[in-house]
Design a protein around this nucleic acid. Structure first.
Lengths: 360, 360
DNA sequence: CGCATAATTGTGCGCGCACACATAATAATA
DNA sequence: TATTATTATGTGTGCGCGCACAATTATGCG
């Protein structure tokens, strides 16, 4: 009838001790005789006790200070979504009476110095936990080393730095993401097609994550043994007159049948390319407003959604699970590679990433 | 610093009354003087009080008896996933100390009498809430009418019966699902292609949901003005020798370039069709084990995932929100139309539909 | 054996809320 | 005005847990 309303009190009476003693065993705070410990263990093995999470939090009125470090959301709608996810998670925890005080720190995604500067400040403020979306590789490792040494728990999202040794990584497998793009690009195409990989406004040497996508994309075609030609382009100076020339040089590729843009910046070039050559299939990332329009107006064929909002929200939830409920959390949490097309895009908009546990 | 730790106690002191009076106003139980009520309202308008959900549940040790009515999970892996979702939701609530006692009732998806019989039993047992995946239309309306009259709250998932007037519907827009299938079918195909819609082992007159998918699929091509030919096939008697003949008759369609199967039963015919004609694109539904293999082995090109597990879980969560937290819940909750391909299928398996709020 | 000290065990309080119940203030009636 | 009704308001308790502290029992040592 009632599956798990076995309380500490019940365990205590079963073992013939008081609740205090059971409590001491559960949290192994010591100060328990071998005899009592043994009796309690025996009961525990039999009944699979699960503490009432609700009651567990009630008493704690400790304030946890968490700092989130992400690229400035004002500079990029993608990071705005991450920010919204953090906000939403914070709010949800508040509803549960969990005093998670989130502080936000931003950095310029093109300046590693700005990352390092913010990181240092965060470290010196001794937070209870840290949430980071790291874009730089070597520039950020010292920060994570410091956090590890000070035993400040931190979770990474969006970009995986294996060496960082984080509590958890939340994001996608970017190599597979590239392969998926390859597959979507290949559907129903002629065997002699050629494709362009485009990185918009990025310094590749700093952006491991984009390189991984590119490898995945190329891997897909290599493994199939087809002999498609694939070219890589790096676009910069978006405002300059040279920008259009760069686009034209892409279109110059013989038998060009598709363009794969490695970030959410796909909207910047989709319309132009599609107008100049309607047969070119365009694939990019993320459901930011501009790309939604791109899909609906036919400039973009596929979007692979990274769901930054839910990534961020899960990040803060995980931190709460770890700090407050002392739950074990998975070392990596890989999100599904969501394929968005003109026909299913609205179904993703109606359903924001913020579903949730009990509340919503 | 601390955003919402305004407690009832605080409101009371602000309004110069006792907590009891505030409580009476919050739950409008009456027995409050106009004067006190006015003062309290004034405070409430100013401070945006949000009750601590944790504390709210703690005291309640009422047991809610919920009955779920779904097709027999032993007969179909799809419904097994729904069942698992219910289980998972039940467990999660248990963790929070919420005494949701879930009872399961099953019916044979091909016999409306079995649905009606179970439904009647449920009604007479006077549960506190009901969760239903209704496959039949007219056969089930009387049940929902009765529930409405007795004010027993019920939530539908999987199939939408608008007239049922449920508390909430959780599922997908099936017409759009059909359109999405059309789009996936159409990518990179020749203009003179023809397609087959296949309903496996279903009585169409009883299955509104499949008809909707078919309409959506046809609508996609009609709206584009292309002149593809589309044929509808209904397959029965899976075990008979006639079955193969039925498949052959599909393959006879001139210029056949794709087969759209309206349910998870796609795995039953994918391999045969693909072997006989590798150029035929196969699209079906749901990530059951057989279809995952189908994708990975190349017999199936696309799966549209309905995520029955998460639908079911959200169903029971919603019921809890409504009954326990007296939250308003949306009248329809439409799930995204997830596109699964051979390349992204593993990313969906690694990430079971059971993410969650705080815990898990 | 008596007393100090350590080791173990038990008890009490508070977290924020809902609800039952006790008390106080007001109105109605004799 | 005294005495009930009636209405309004305040107080107390428990939900399950964690933690501080009190009480008890065992051990050491002169």
């Amino acid at each position: 009838m009632k599956p798990n309303n076995i309380r500490i009190k019940d365990i205590a009476s079963m073992a013939g001790v008081s609740v205090g003693t059971v409590d001491r065993v559960l949290h192994n705070r010591g100060k328990v005789s071998r005899d009592a410990a043994r009796r309690i263990e025996k009961v525990l093995n039999k009944i699979n006790y699960k503490p009432n999470l609700i009651a567990q939090t009630l008493g704690k009125n400790k304030n946890y200070r968490i700092v989130a470090l992400i690229p400035n959301p004002a500079l990029d709608p993608y990071w705005k979504q991450s920010f919204d996810g953090l906000k939403s998670g914070e709010e949800q925890l508040g509803q549960f009476g969990i005093h998670f005080i989130l502080e936000y720190k931003y950095y310029d995604p093109h300046k590693k110095e700005s990352f390092q500067e913010s990181a240092l400040k965060i470290f010196h403020s001794h937070p209870d936990g840290v949430l980071v979306a790291p874009l730089f590789y070597y520039a950020s490792l010292p920060f994570f080393k410091k956090l590890s040494e000070t035993k400040i728990p931190f979770i990474l999202f969006n970009t995986h730095l294996v060496e960082a040794n984080a509590l958890s990584f939340i994001g996608q497998d970017l190599f597979k993401s590239g392969r998926l793009a390859g597959e979507l690009m290949n559907i129903g195409q002629q065997p002699n097609s050629s494709y362009a990989i485009v990185h918009v406004n990025e310094d590749l040497s700093n952006s491991v994550h984009l390189v991984e996508k590119e490898h995945g994309f190329r891997d897909y075609f290599e493994k199939r043994g087809d002999a498609q030609r694939i070219g890589t382009f790096i676009l910069n100076n978006l405002k300059s007159s040279a920008f259009q020339n760069q686009l034209e040089s892409i279109l110059q590729m013989p038998d060009l049948s598709g363009v794969y843009v490695s970030t959410s910046k796909v909207y910047l070039i989709a319309q132009y390319l599609k107008k100049r050559n309607p047969g070119v299939r365009i694939i990019g990332y993320d459901l930011i407003k501009e790309n939604v329009s791109g899909l609906q107006e036919g400039h973009i064929d596929f979007i692979i959604n990274q769901n930054p909002m839910r990534q961020a929200k899960l990040g803060i939830q995980s931190l709460a699970n770890y700090l407050i409920f002392s739950k074990q959390i998975p070392s990596t949490y890989l999100f599904p590679l969501e394929v968005i097309t003109p026909e299913n895009v609205t179904s993703y908009l109606a359903h924001p990433g913020n579903l949730a546990g009990i509340v919503v």
